[in-house]
């Protein structure tokens, strides 16, 4: 029993790592304050669910989820390219409400609030699925490490530190911001797909706002612009989140209590240790 519990935790940690890492690429490395990351996770989850329920094999649905999320991500980056800082943050946050509205109302595609049940497992055995998500998570760590240390990654960081300077050095900052968002949201979509195939269910509550705070606290506690930080951040905060389950006796307020703890931790980090554990930059 404890074994199954551990497998479940490690599976979620792997998936969350992909989500937080990909968020780090846009916020930590490129300086784009995207608060709507969950939208791309959700797009991936829905895309994968709909395809899989229509008999498309998983290796296609998972890939298609990444591509679709990435197309949306690139489009959003293109539209919002002139926005910065808190404006971009608010607009991307607004995307969450669009996503909720569409997923609730496009009944013929999403079944609205009822959600989509019966999404097939990729791998029946939970332990093997855990290994599978860990492998994809490790792959994303490797790819993001390569990306952020490449010439393109350096240009992302130059844009973060000073977009005007990057442009007068001949860098097409518009193009690179789109690339950053596209790469990030591709993996957000993949993570969404892994989540959908794991939970076997997706509904509009995937776009819950508190998930943004969860992601941000994992990201910032780990540290912006640090790959190691993101992975460690997810580990520690997921462990904290799980331990709340054992501390709070009343099961009906576990969720609320967890949100409160995460919010407080986020605020404390922002005040006292804005660079988190491994962070290299401030936002």
């Amino acid at each position: 029993m404890i074994h199954e519990y551990l497998i479940s935790i490690l599976t979620f940690i792997s998936i969350y790592s992909i989500i937080v890492l990909s968020l780090n690429v846009v916020i930590g490395f490129t300086g784009l304050i995207n608060l709507g990351h969950i939208v791309f996770v959700g797009i991936g989850a829905y895309a994968s669910a709909i395809l899989a329920l229509n008999g498309v094999p998983w290796y296609i649905s998972i890939f298609a989820a990444g591509i679709l999320a990435s197309v949306f991500g690139a489009a959003i980056a293109a539209i919002t390219s002139r926005l910065k800082g808190d404006y971009l943050a608010m607009v991307t946050l607004g995307l969450v409400f669009i996503a909720v509205a569409v997923s609730r109302n496009w009944i013929s595609l999403t079944r609205g609030a009822l959600g989509l049940p019966g999404i097939p497992d990729i791998i029946k055995n939970n332990f093997h699925y855990m290994i599978f998500t860990m492998a994809i998570s490790a792959l994303s760590v490797f790819l993001f490490y390569r990306l952020t240390n490449s010439e393109t990654g350096k240009i992302f960081q130059a844009i973060r530190d000073n977009e005007v300077a990057a442009s007068v050095l001949g860098k097409n900052t518009y193009f690179y911001k789109i690339i950053s968002m596209a790469a990030s949201t591709f993996f957000a979509g993949i993570a969404g797909s892994l989540l959908a195939h794991h939970l076997n269910f997706v509904d509009p509550t995937i776009f819950e706002l508190d998930f943004i705070v969860t992601m941000l606290v994992m990201l910032i506690a780990g540290g912006l612009a640090s790959i190691t930080g993101s992975v460690v951040g997810v580990f520690i905060l997921y462990a904290l989140s799980e331990s709340i389950r054992f501390i709070v006796v009343n099961p009906s307020i576990v969720g609320a209590f967890r949100e409160m703890v995460f919010a407080v931790v986020l605020i404390l980090i922002l005040i006292f240790r804005p660079r988190g554990m491994f962070g290299k930059v401030d936002i």
Binding site: K154, Q157, A158, N162, V164, A165, A166, A225
Partner: peptide, 14 residues
């Protein structure tokens, strides 16, 4: 306008 969080070398490599 330097890239504050980047090394001297990386600033130049941009």
């Amino acid at each position: 306008k330097v890239f504050r969080n980047m090394s001297i070398k990386d600033n130049l490599l941009i």
